[in-house]
Design a binder for these strands. Structure first.
Ligand SMILES: [Mn+2]
Ligand SMILES: [Mn+2]
Ligand SMILES: [Zn+2]
Ligand SMILES: [Zn+2]
Lengths: 137, 137
DNA sequence: AATTGTAGTGCAACGGAAGTGCATTTATTA
DNA sequence: TAATAAATGCACTTCCGTTGCACTACAATT
């Protein structure tokens, strides 16, 4: 609990009660989280607050946003030491077509791609879709 | 013009006037197209028709859908001979942060990734973001 | 040519999700 | 304690994708 407060403070995010709860919720999840998920988990809180919390977290490098192709923005905690704010920590994400969950594969970095003349890459997003470990057994 | 009709027919899509126009429009574009783009180009036609045309095209392997991370679905014509319907023709896409346009880099295939035990990949999406060739000069 | 059926089109409305303006509450600091 | 700033809540908006249902154009069949 104290660690969460510290983590937030380190990142320039004031550790309010709500923020700590959301952080905790995300830390306990194995999968990427959408705003709707948080909304369901904290029905008492207002959507806007949750929305802005996620945005603040993202901006301060506490979480990174994930576009898994479902059309819903998802988020996951950043690893300690990752510097998403500056340059993306370019790991890939896996989206399961069966259980519809998305996970970070933080060990799997996005390979270097050499682009045609004139193209300058600043960021990359790689999503693999298929059957996840849980669903394949 | 006749080629378009033929192409559509080959793919099991009846070549109506509207469909031919949309195909032509997409063929003349260098970049990926969103529904809104088509809407603007053909103000007289109804959104639904355009929407369903894209869906039909997609389903019949005339176009492929592109998720470039902007939250808007885009489409581009498939290459002749590509078999999107069965397995994705896994080329990468580039989205320009400056002009907001997205292009297919059909020559650049998505590299093979070896996933952890238990994960089975069926599809992949790789989007690079940065400055495009036109905007970098 | 008239009839029947199927595929395409148009209109209207819905629903999810992201986002914003402004008032109110809570925390910080002077 | 008073003044100030930050966080939260409420209401409302916009954008995009999507669907149901009625109507129309087309093609096949008699
Ligand atoms: Mn991740
Ligand atoms: Mn493409
Ligand atoms: Zn799964
Ligand atoms: Zn550009």
């Amino acid at each position: 609990m104290k660690e969460i407060e510290q983590r937030l403070t380190e990142n320039g995010v004031r550790p309010t009660a709500m923020r700590i709860l959301i952080y905790k919720y995300m830390a306990e999840s194995e999968v990427a989280i959408a705003l709707t998920d948080i909304e369901n988990a904290f029905a008492k809180a207002d959507r806007t607050t949750l929305f802005r919390t996620l945005k603040t977290f993202e901006q301060k490098g506490v979480v990174h946003q994930i576009d898994d192709g479902t059309g819903v923005q998802k988020y996951a905690l950043c690893e300690t030491g990752c510097n998403c704010e500056l340059e993306q920590d370019l790991h890939l994400h896996f989206h399961c077509n069966n259980c519809n969950e998305t996970v970070c594969l933080t060990e799997h970095k996005i390979p270097n791609i050499n682009l045609p003349e004139g193209y300058v890459a600043e960021d990359a997003n790689l999503v693999l879709k298929g059957i996840c470990e849980k669903c394949s057994t």
